[in-house]
Design a protein around this nucleic acid. Structure first.
Lengths: 110, 110
DNA sequence: ATAATTACTTACATAAAGTAACTAACTTTA
DNA sequence: TAAAGTTAGTTACTTTATGTAAGTAATTAT
């Protein structure tokens, strides 16, 4: 049973961020509206999961989907106000990672 | 193929935070050193995963494990300096969740 | 000797993520 | 007109992660 003493809002925020790819998708979209294939290749997520995540983020009011009936069709994804408000948090992650993480190889395990 | 243009440190930070439970474990430990069963019941994680996550966090230098050979044995987990430095980030999540999320029921989907 | 406690581990079931091939709508090229 | 290319996905299947429940070791209490 889940008898959590934690704030349910915090838990929900965490459940969003702890979904694989959502953080990177949001971070990537901080640089402006972009299309499916751009996000796909920028962060290296598969179409299947990107599609799934974008739908979820749209349902949560974090991402906006706009269709431009050009040729071929252009669909742009952008952050809503709610999505943009995640920027300070993303910057904190950025800061922390710059300060405390190494590129990889040196796993700091001794 | 993962041809990421993203900063590898940022990606790594995200991969830590996007593991289920790690965020909540760290958040919970911000209130001070605590033992296994305390964390377990506070956030509602199973022993299996808590054990797994604490080991990973220990390997990443985020969590410290200290054994007190009392009776019954007491083992306390605490945040290292690296772990504590995640506080501002956790506070941002807290802030964002307070501002933008509702307790649940009202799914904001209309 | 039996039960209780803490900090786990093991075994197994279910859910999520990865991979690759496929589709729809349209356009360009041959 | 047919074949191939583009974008934005979807479908089917495999692998990995997570959930659940029961078990273990060391120790103390009854």
């Amino acid at each position: 049973m889940n008898t959590t003493a934690l704030c349910p809002r915090f838990e929900k925020a965490m459940s969003i961020l702890s979904q694989r790819w959502t953080g990177l998708i949001i971070y990537q979209m901080l640089s402006g509206p972009q299309r499916f294939c751009t996000i796909e290749s920028a962060i290296g997520v598969s179409g299947r999961l990107l599609s799934e995540r974008l739908k979820e983020l749209e349902n949560q009011g974090i991402v906006n989907r706009e269709v431009f009936p050009e040729t071929p069709v252009r669909i742009e994804y952008s952050l809503t106000e709610k999505g943009l408000s995640l920027e300070p948090l993303m910057r904190e992650i950025e800061k922390w990672s710059q300060t405390w993480l190494e590129t990889d190889s040196t796993a700091k395990n001794d």
